[in-house]
Design a protein around this nucleic acid. Structure first.
Lengths: 207, 207, 207, 207
DNA sequence: CATGAATGAGCCTTCATTCAT
DNA sequence: TATGAATGAAGGCTCATTCAT
């Protein structure tokens, strides 16, 4: 009986936390981390301010949690996309496809607003950036595999390590996305990324 | 004689403005635009708050002025560096040299702190970003010339326009610098930029 | 028991709000809305500035609340005064009495200082003027009844609508009160209002 | 020769003063006294801030000068209008005409904006209100004459002194104009003034 | 007379966090 | 767990006036 009560309370607690989490998510995507106050979050969630600090240490820790989950979901999506390729597909093709997929997600699913907010947060470092830029992020592993395949298939040169090439590919995407963020709306992310990768892949080819 | 007197007054005014300007510059470089208050600027400058608003319309306009001047000085420096090359130098060599020079300035002269602040401001768009990212910035013109030379010398392929290549080169630098900003200190800007350009130049070569 | 506790907290909060409210009321009456800062209000109330914004959205909303309550109390007073008249009293007599009562309240209870502040605010429109000048204010209804009675009793002419006469009566009071505000202390509000109403009532009589 | 120079200087000075005066006039009419800064006045006038304080003791004294001149011009206009009546015209007719004329000037020539600003200033008393509300204002003399004529012609009752009636007439206009200011644009000044005067004149008639 | 740089008090509002209940 | 009142530092900006030149 006591357990049951506790479970009820726990369930309520989880629900409360979820309400805060979801409200924050929506608000942040719309207005950015800096322009959303704890007040507005709890108001939208319909809970008290005190509750907020019961469930999250600070505004920043909520942001971090949000970002981590977000990236994890993203990479899961990319992974399933990647698994849809036949084993004998060429690495450069796969690379171009996944890059295209990523850019589509950035522009269509996530959208400029949210991306800008994330890229702001990354450089402002009010949050733990590791889930997003850490080399153990799932995304890096995926790229790594593809590059490795390219080298094994003798499509890519071996002058640089797989890790190096991986890093530079993802860095390129991030760099061009940053450019997109600061040039929006006068910048077509997809075409620019594809152009850049065309040069990069050309430069990586075994000659 | 009257001119002299006026000049004295004007000189004082210029001095005051400079004190504000310099104090702001130092504080911004250390703490970032958002974390420096007008109060702290005028305190450091040893002038009144009213004086601040005599010389600058707002905190933002001061930031803009600062950024514009900054970039102009930078490009002047790059230009004189560029002019030191012999006319028959190869485009890819010049490109690599100037890129190296730029990175040296970013890391050694300007420093991480200041760069991060600028990159923050760029994405936050609290400032007029045009002097920095506008395609009429002197830097673009310099790169343009070099690329053109490379094409004329039949070193680079002609599949893309000069402007496109120029943009992608500078975009690459900016992208990697952004990466530096979010990875510092675990990131060697110079070596990464050079690696990236090695790939890029390789991909741009006429084959 | 829990309710009791809650009530204690709520009581404290109400008390805090009241302290702010009362302090503001006193200060406004003395110095006028424009010359009382939020700082001075919270200082007088002995609470923090943050508390002010917990209880009121803005300085202006406090002013509005103050004005609305003020007028409501006033009209309640007038109403009870009005109800003290015997049903067969003549309309002109009642009118003269209530006008006299109003003027007494304005001069003796409220006082010149407060009145001037309200009349300033009315014309500056820094506040929502509706509770004071809106035709649905209780005062208008009272006057309406009296005028109607006067017409029913064939004391007043029927050339104008009841509403028109009502408006002009109240407008006259307001106009003369404005005159008082700009001529104080060289102006006897009561005698001037009575003279004016003597003329007005004379002009309204059935002939 | 010295005189000539001085005269030139004096002429310049007068011109400077006029420029300040005119600029202030325009700005005040548009934005109100409180919302026009000395800075904006001198900017519009194309003179220095120092010059402003050479010619006017303060912002307030400029406002006062402006108001005085303004009223004087107005009354001159009313006077010439009054003189156009035939000597045997009835007082009530003249009164109604001049009142109509005044209201036309208020609404059409001066306009709501300026009137509101004046009525604000009157009650705020940042300025010397005497030129506007002083009983020695030309307007009072004109009304006085008309009322006197009405009494002489046995049109008006003699229960009140000429001065009293005069005051109440002008007070009525001012009161209704105040009402206009706080109700604009939902208030037709002219028709309301005429209605009010119809009642008043009716109440003043000899019976 | 003219200039305009300098002053500095004043003002409203925001917000993350704490803590007693 | 949940509440929400209370805190207080921080921040950008306005403006009438002065005064040295």
């Amino acid at each position: 009986m006591k357990n049951l009560k506790l479970n009820n309370r726990q369930a309520k607690a989880i629900e409360t936390k979820a309400k805060i989490y979801d409200s924050a998510d929506q608000l942040f995507r719309t207005y950015g981390f800096d322009h959303v106050s704890v007040d507005s979050i709890v108001e939208k969630a319909g809970v008290s301010k005190g509750s907020f600090y019961v469930h999250f240490d600070s505004k920043n820790s909520l942001i971090s949690a949000l970002a981590t989950d977000f990236v994890a979901r993203l990479d899961l999506d990319y992974k399933s996309f990647l698994e849809s390729f036949p084993p004998n597909a060429m690495a450069s093709e796969i690379l171009l496809s996944i890059v295209g997929k990523i850019v589509d997600v950035l522009t269509l699913t996530i959208g400029y607003n949210s991306m800008k907010i994330i890229y702001e947060a990354l450089i402002t470092r009010t949050i733990n950036t590791d889930p997003i830029v850490g080399y153990d992020r799932e995304l890096y592993k995926m790229f790594n595999e593809i590059i490795k395949k390219g080298i094994d298939q003798q499509e890519f040169q071996t002058e640089m390590t797989i890790d190096t090439i991986t890093k530079h590919c993802i860095m390129a995407i991030r760099g061009i996305t940053y450019e997109w963020c600061i040039r929006y709306p006068d910048f077509d992310l997809k075409s620019e990324v594809l152009i850049h990768f065309k040069i990069l892949l050309n430069g990586l080819k075994k000659q």
